[in-house]
Structure formats: C-alpha cells, structure tokens
Design a protein around this nucleic acid. Structure first.
Length: 476
DNA sequence: ATGTCC
C-alpha cells in the first residue's frame, strides 16, 4: 500500500532538525519521496542527520546531506541579529476573522529590533514575511517583504457624469471597450502600436543602475496592463446616499470604473532583488528571515527606496492609462477620481517622530484621506474616508480577505454555482478562475463592521461588468 | 503577486 501520510516540520524538529533553513531543505526531500512510508522516511531522516556523508549521492536525500555537510543552517550565533524578547504593541481589528498564522507572523514582526508599532487589519491572512493586512512602523529601516512582491499594488476609481439608469443602455459598449483596452495574464503586455506612452518611462531613476535600466523596456510593454491573480478592471455603479461636499458629487448613482493592479513584472523584479540583498546583509532568525530589512541610510536602502517609489508611480501610471483609454472610449466626463496604494511604505510621523510605515495589503486611512476597499466580483466595494486612528497606524483593510485558499476554492467550488451567483447579482464576468469566486472571500460587510473605528463609508460600488485574468488552465 | 528557482 502506498503511504502518503504527510511529513511536516514538527516531525523533523522532533528528530533534531534545527528550525533554520535546513528545515526547508529537509522538507523538500520529502517531495521526492517515492514508495516509502512515513516511518521509513523518518528513519532515513534520522540517519541523514547522524551520518550525512553516507547520503551525499542519495537520490532523495543527497541535497539535504550536502547541506548538512556544508554546515547550512548552523550559522554562527554572532551573525544573526536577535529578535527582541518582547515585541512592540500592535492592535488587531476583527480578530475573529483572522487566521492564526497571520497573527503569529505579526508577533514575529513586532519583535524586530527596528519595530516601533504595528497593526493587523480585519482581512489579514498569512503572507511571506509580514502578513497580508499587516501594518508595521519601523525606525530608519525598510523591509522589502513588508511592502510585498507587488510594489504599489493599488486601487483607482473614476466616477463618471453618467447616471446609473443609463448603464443599462450602454452595457454592450462598456463590455466591448473593456475587452478592447485591457490586458491580463502573467507576463502579458502590449506590442507595437498598442504600447502606451506615459512620462513615467522618462523618469531619471531608470538610470540609477543597469539592473533598473534593464527593466525599462518591460515596463513600457506592460504599461496599462493588469496582470493576474485578484487583479481586475470593472464597470459598476457608484451609489452616494448623500451629497459629498469634498468630491462635489450629489446624492445619486453614477457609472464608475474600478481597477486593481500593481507594478507588474517591474515591481516584482525589484522586490525579489532587494529582498535578497536585505537577506544577505540582515540575517535574522529563521522565523523572521523574510522580514530582512535595509538601513535607509545605506546604499542598498536608498536604491530600494527610490525604486519602490518608481514602481509605485509606475503602478499609478498603469491605472491612469487604463482609465484614460476607457474614459475616452465611452466619451464620458470624470466627476471625481480616487486612488490609493495598498502595498507600499511611507515616511510618516508617529508619536512625534518619523517612522517608516509599511502597509502590505492595507489602505492608508489618515484623517480625511479617501481610499477604496473592494469586496469581490459580486460583493460591493466601498469608497471610504479615513478617521486617522493612530492605533491602526492610520490604516484600514484592503478588501474582504480570503475565506478559502486558492487551492481550496479551485478544488471545492463548482462552476455552475459561481454562474448562479453571478446571474443572481447581475454581474457579467470576463475571465477569472474559480479561486476568485465570490464565495472564496469573506463577507465584506462583516469586515467593514470590524473597522468602523478606522474609516467612514462615503459611497458604495456595485460591480456590473468585471474582467480578470483567464483561468490558469485556459492560459495560452 | 510574478513568465511561477538565480
């Protein structure tokens, strides 16, 4: 009988494997396991630890054995920057909605020697380094994975001078133009005459070094594209229950365009390079290694800061291109435009001193600052105004947050059930995988209720025509 | 999130 009983980190630690990167290498050996039971595997693991030399050429354990012989994961104590015994304080909003893994990651982040304060938003879930929905203020240090892989991932909303009732006569045009002017999928961009122009491509930061210079062409190609995963471009109806003086918009329902995407391949490449540089310089204990940080005064820190800002502005430019194309295509006037990053780091004041506030999947919500918190492809999104809650480091959630992991959703959800929900909500969907189904997300109303102290709702957005990247299995 | 491990 084939025994597929999984082996996890705890099993290996019980055998004496240290909680260092050696544990990760050891777990990889389990992926090559063929026809061996868990008991047999564990017996091998024990012997590899005791006599690694004998396993150097083994087809399953060779890599692990080599790592042990080379002393990987037995780093000299003095190389490692210790975490503080007691972390700085952090507030949690809607803890009943938050998975334990995210809270553990926040606890680790709070123990960083550079940590000043933190906060966890109600849509938080486990990420790489800092949890998604995590906010962390640090002193003179930037954590590339505290910003995230998709630097400058953001929302942009255009509200048009078109009344909601007119939407139903425009559906054909809206859908056609949405398909015509947007581009989705990993690696995808525009070619030839379809490439967009924007001042961002002339920015001096592209001349900082050869690394960033090499990303300029890709940035041009992908300018105005949306990428994959949970990114979208959608038409919907924006409902103001009362007149908003600041926006100068009367009570009523308006056609609106909402977009969610980031800095595409360019930002991901910057994030990857600078987190690696940070890890080489800033060696932290195993559980904190993805929180490696750069001193802002160091050369690498200044390079990252400049490139992060460039990637943020590039992400903004991508939204601008999409909104400009579609606004022109439908010949509408824009009454108001609102936008915000939700994966970024800012220099802000906290209790009288300057700190670096990392928001990784969190909406800036300083007093009076507007932001957009999307729901799902069928659930409403909200235009909000920050209340400036210092305990939340002036932040709010960046969405509903997942209720099902991507794999769970793909495995358990049925295409006809998703279709039924879309039909019920009157939403037309172009693209998207099952992992983006409405049921894969938490109830946005509960998430909003959990952050009533952080933001006021200004208006509500109801999605009507949604485009996302095609399902991975259907991708060309 | 990203052409999914340089």
């Amino acid at each position: 009988m084939k025994d597929n009983t999984p082996i996890n980190g705890n099993d290996l630690m019980a055998l004496g494997y240290p909680q260092t990167e050696l544990l990760g290498i050891a777990l990889k050996a389990n992926k090559k396991r063929t026809g061996l039971t868990k008991v047999e595997m564990l017996a091998h693991y024990k012997m590899v630890l005791d006599k690694a030399e004998d396993y150097i050429n083994h087809h399953v354990f060779g890599k692990l054995a080599k790592a042990i012989v080379e002393g990987v994961g037995q780093r000299e104590e003095e190389d490692v920057i210790p975490l503080r015994e007691h972390g700085v304080g952090y507030s949690i909003y809607g803890s009943e909605h938050i998975e334990e893994g995210a809270i553990k990651q926040m606890q680790t982040a709070a123990k960083l020697p550079v940590a000043v304060a933190g906060a966890l938003m109600p849509d938080a879930h486990q990420g790489y380094g800092l949890p998604i929905g995590g906010v962390l203020a640090t002193e003179n240090a930037v954590i590339p994975y505290g910003v995230g892989v998709d630097i400058g991932c953001r929302m942009a909303l255009s509200i048009f001078d078109i009344k909601g009732v007119e939407f139903y006569g425009m559906e054909g045009l809206l859908k056609e133009q949405l398909v015509k002017h947007t581009k989705f999928g990993a690696g995808h961009g525009f070619q030839g005459q379809y490439k967009a122009q924007h001042d961002i491509l002339d920015r001096g930061e592209f001349n900082l070094n050869p690394f960033i210079k090499n990303l300029q062409d890709k940035a041009w190609e992908q300018l105005g594209s949306s990428g994959g995963g949970n990114h979208f471009v959608e038409w919907g109806l924006m409902e103001f229950l009362e007149r908003d003086e600041v926006l100068n918009i009367d009570k009523g329902t308006y056609l609106a365009l909402l977009t969610h995407s980031g800095s595409r391949g360019m930002g991901a490449t910057i994030a990857g390079r600078y987190t690696q540089i940070a890890k080489d310089i800033c060696k932290l204990p195993y559980e904190a290694k993805n929180l490696a940080y750069l001193d802002l005064k160091s050369e690498a820190g200044q390079e990252y800061w400049a490139m992060m800002n460039l990637a943020g502005d590039y992400a903004s430019a991508c939204h601008e291109v999409i909104h400009d194309k579609l606004t022109k295509a439908i010949g509408a006037e824009v009454l108001a435009k609102i936008e915000n990053h939700h994966n970024f780091a800012w220099k802000e004041m906290y209790q009288g001193r300057e700190v670096i506030v990392h928001r990784k999947g969190a909406t800036p919500a300083s007093k009076g600052v507007m932001g957009i918190i999307p729901g799902s492809m069928t659930a409403p999104g909200f235009l909000v105004r920050g209340k400036g809650e210092e305990d939340a480091l002036n932040s709010a959630s960046h969405g509903a947050g997942r209720q099902m992991s991507r794999t769970q959703a793909i495995k358990n959800l049925k295409a006809e059930d998703i279709k039924a929900v879309l039909a019920d909500c009157g939403v037309q969907l172009i693209g998207a995988g099952k992992d983006e189904a409405p049921m894969a997300y938490k109830d946005i109303h509960q998430v909003m209720a959990a952050q009533g102290e952080l933001v006021d709702v200004v208006a509500m957005f109801t999605p009507k025509i949604v485009r996302m990247a095609d399902d991975g299995s259907r991708e060309d």
